[in-house]
Amino acid sequence: MFDIGFTELLLVGLVALVVLGPERLPGAVRTAGLWIGRIKRSFNSIKAEVEREIGADEIRRQLHNERILELEREMKAMKQDILGTGTGQPATEQRAEPSSDAAPSVQDKNPQP
């Protein structure tokens, strides 16, 4: 992460030994270790929370997309029902059109002079 080698750590340890002295150095290292642990736990919890939120957002997006697809399917089915017969009626309720065998219309009964 920080790309710190052994020589850098040794240098930091020597400087800390000179600045703090041999009496306070173990306590300072212990305190630094505790703080580093707390910081790591905080970052891990924040990371886990962000990942959960991202996962929840993805699930919400998938549900929204599924609803849109279902609505599109319903609209397509309704369109096919409407346009399927050409009469504006659903294909399941088609009217029987009069055939040539049917009775003549009113105009045929009254011939024009």
Rank of each mutant, 00 (worst) to 15 (best):
P26Q: 02
T85S: 15
G55D: 07
V106K: 10
R61G: 06
L25D: 06
D57Y: 08
F43Y: 11
T87C: 02
G33P: 00
A103G: 06
E93K: 15
L71Q: 11
S45G: 11
R73Q: 09
L17T: 15
A56R: 06
A103S: 10
R73F: 04
A28D: 03
P22D: 01
D3M: 11
A96W: 10
D108S: 03
D81I: 00
R30W: 09
R38A: 14
G33T: 10
A28K: 05
S100M: 13
R41Y: 02
D3E: 13
F6Y: 08
G84S: 00
Q80V: 12
V50N: 08
I68H: 01
E49D: 15
D81P: 05
P98C: 00
R73S: 04
F2C: 03
P98M: 02
N44T: 00
G5K: 04
P90K: 15
D57T: 12
L34E: 13
I82L: 14
L20Y: 09
P104W: 07
L9N: 09
D3N: 14
P113T: 06
R95F: 13
L83Q: 08
I39S: 03
E97G: 04
R60T: 03
E58R: 08
L11Y: 06
Q94D: 07
H64L: 14
R67F: 04
I4T: 06
N44K: 09
D81Q: 14
P22G: 01
R41Q: 10
I68L: 08
I36V: 10
F43C: 10
K47E: 13
A56G: 10
L25W: 03
L71S: 07
L20N: 06
A48K: 13
E49G: 14
P98S: 03
A48S: 09
A16Y: 01
G33M: 13
R41I: 05
V18E: 07
L83D: 15
G88C: 01
S100P: 13
G5A: 05
Q94N: 06
R24M: 02
A96Y: 08
K109N: 05
S105W: 07
A32G: 09
A56H: 09
L14C: 02
P26A: 03
R24F: 03
G88Y: 03
E70N: 13
T31M: 05
A48N: 07
N110G: 01
N110T: 11
S99P: 00
A103D: 14
I4Q: 01
M78G: 08
V19I: 14
L17R: 15
E49N: 12
K47T: 06
E97A: 10
Q62V: 08
L9M: 09
I59D: 07
T7Q: 12
Q89G: 09
